[in-house]
């Protein structure tokens, strides 16, 4: 079992408070993701972005949320056997949970290195597999939490604050 935490500077305290109290979100959006479903992949991220846009979230922040969510959604469909995505919207931030059906990440630190990829030919032909997914997620979020069991399921959680 491996766990990874990243907090952007200045956000650790409030993020820890969230994970301690686990407040109920104001809005919850739930999606089911199919394995290798490259037609619908990205739909969940798009819906979450649209919901946040309607709530008036700043466009530069929306872009960061959309890119991080999309990369994580693609990971779930391209590298895992599909799974679930839950968008939890709070007054001051969004927390998106990506819970896939396995097979787990062997070495999270290694998968954070730009250029490292385990993608097969089908995934590469689609324009993915550059080894930039997780680095791109980290670059765009305020908090990144990955919890993975080799051979088991992976949970990826991202938080982006609205200001």
């Amino acid at each position: 079992m491996a766990e990874y935490w990243f907090y952007r500077e200045g956000y650790e305290e409030q993020a820890r408070e969230h994970f301690k109290t686990l407040p109920d979100p104001a809005i919850k959006l739930e999606f089911s993701i199919g394995e290798r479903d490259f037609v619908n992949a990205g739909n969940a991220s798009s819906q979450i972005k649209m919901a946040l846009k309607r709530l008036g979230v700043d466009s530069a922040i929306l872009r960061r949320i959309a890119i991080a969510a999309y990369e994580a959604e693609i990971n779930e469909t391209a590298h895992a056997r599909g799974g679930d995505i839950t968008g939890n919207i709070y007054p001051e931030y969004v927390l998106i949970r990506f819970y896939d059906k396995g097979p787990g990440i062997d070495d999270i630190e290694q998968s954070m290195i730009p250029g490292f990829s385990t993608a097969d030919d089908q995934v590469r032909e689609m324009g993915f597999g550059a080894g930039l997914g997780l680095p791109n997620i980290k670059k765009n979020v305020d908090v990144l939490h990955i919890d993975s069991v080799t051979g088991g399921r992976t949970l990826v959680e991202i938080i982006v604050y609205f200001s």
Partner: peptide, 16 residues
């Protein structure tokens, strides 16, 4: 400008 023609190239415009 791209040579990719799968649905994800269109989906990108939802994000950026």
């Amino acid at each position: 400008l791209s040579g990719l023609t799968n649905p994800q190239i269109i989906r990108l415009s939802d994000m950026i």
